[in-house]
Amino acid sequence: MIDVQAVGPDDWKAWRELRLAALEEAAFAFGSQLADWVDATEERWRERLSVAGAYQVIASIDGTPVGLAGGFPADEESNAELVSMWVAPAGRGHGVGNALMTAIEDWARSTGATVLDLSVVPGNDPAHNLYLRNGFEDTDEQGDLMADGVRRELVMRKQL
């Protein structure tokens, strides 16, 4: 059974463990790099989970954490953004990605957002396909520059 729980600053150790695993296993998929976070202090992790208006979740299967995602208010009043999504290899193919996305979408709607954006790295076909299956559409917008300084994330959008 998949359980998705909201987390806050007091859950920093569980978030840290998953986030570091994500940055190690799928470094190509994130703007942040493992080196940016591996030596981060408790205070920095707590701050990451204390951003005003944000919503972070951890998904578990039978008590074992296997995924995480975050939702942040966007610059535009009616938009929200899905960030930091990752599912551990042991959780893939079990509906964890869908459960994480549903949690963030529900949060976004509860804030009054009517649009949910996300960014995906070109070539990350499993994630891209998950997002398409969940109603996101490709846009012509380019996201942030990736750590390699060459590639840009691709922005996807879903009307809520």
Rank of each mutant, 00 (worst) to 15 (best):
V83K: 15
W37K: 04
D62W: 05
I58T: 03
I104D: 06
A103G: 13
S110G: 12
F30T: 01
W107I: 04
Y131W: 04
A14P: 00
D62P: 07
T102C: 12
K158T: 00
E105K: 14
F72H: 10
T114W: 05
G95K: 13
R46G: 03
M85S: 05
V51C: 08
A29C: 06
D39P: 05
F28A: 14
F30G: 02
F136I: 00
A99C: 09
T111H: 09
D140E: 14
E153N: 11
G67P: 04
L23D: 01
T41V: 08
A90R: 14
P126G: 06
V96K: 09
R151Q: 13
A90C: 12
G67T: 04
Q33Y: 07
A147R: 10
L18K: 02
L130Q: 07
E42I: 06
A127P: 01
W12D: 00
M85Y: 05
I104N: 10
L154I: 10
M156F: 03
N124C: 10
W37S: 03
A22C: 09
G91Y: 07
W15L: 03
S60A: 15
G112N: 13
E137F: 08
G70C: 09
G149Q: 08
A127C: 04
T41R: 11
L18N: 01
D117Y: 14
L23P: 05
V38D: 08
S60W: 00
Y55E: 04
D106Y: 07
D75T: 11
A52P: 08
D138L: 10
W107S: 05
S50L: 08
A69M: 06
P65V: 01
A59T: 02
P65W: 01
V83G: 06
E153Y: 10
D140R: 13
E47S: 13
A90K: 14
E137S: 11
N98R: 15
E42K: 15
L49F: 06
A29N: 02
L82N: 08
A59G: 10
R46I: 03
E17R: 15
E141A: 14
E81M: 14
W12V: 00
V66P: 04
D106T: 14
D140C: 08
G123T: 12
L116Y: 07
V115R: 15
Q33C: 09
R48M: 13
N124M: 12
Y131P: 00
G31E: 02
A74M: 06
A113M: 12
G70D: 03
A74Q: 06
I58N: 04
W86H: 10
A59Q: 03
H94I: 06
V121I: 13
L20N: 08
T114Y: 04
R19D: 03
T139S: 02
L20R: 13
T139D: 01
M156S: 01
G135F: 01
A147L: 07
V155F: 02
N129R: 15
E105S: 15
K13D: 01
S84W: 07
E105L: 15
N124F: 11
E25G: 12
E77T: 12
G149W: 05
L145M: 06
L145S: 02
A35I: 11
V66M: 10
K13L: 11
W12R: 00
V38S: 12
D75K: 13
M101C: 14
R133W: 03
R48Y: 12
L34I: 12
A59I: 03
D117Q: 12
V150W: 02
R44Y: 05
L116R: 09
V87Q: 09
D140S: 14
S50R: 09
D39H: 10
G93E: 03
L23H: 06
L132S: 04
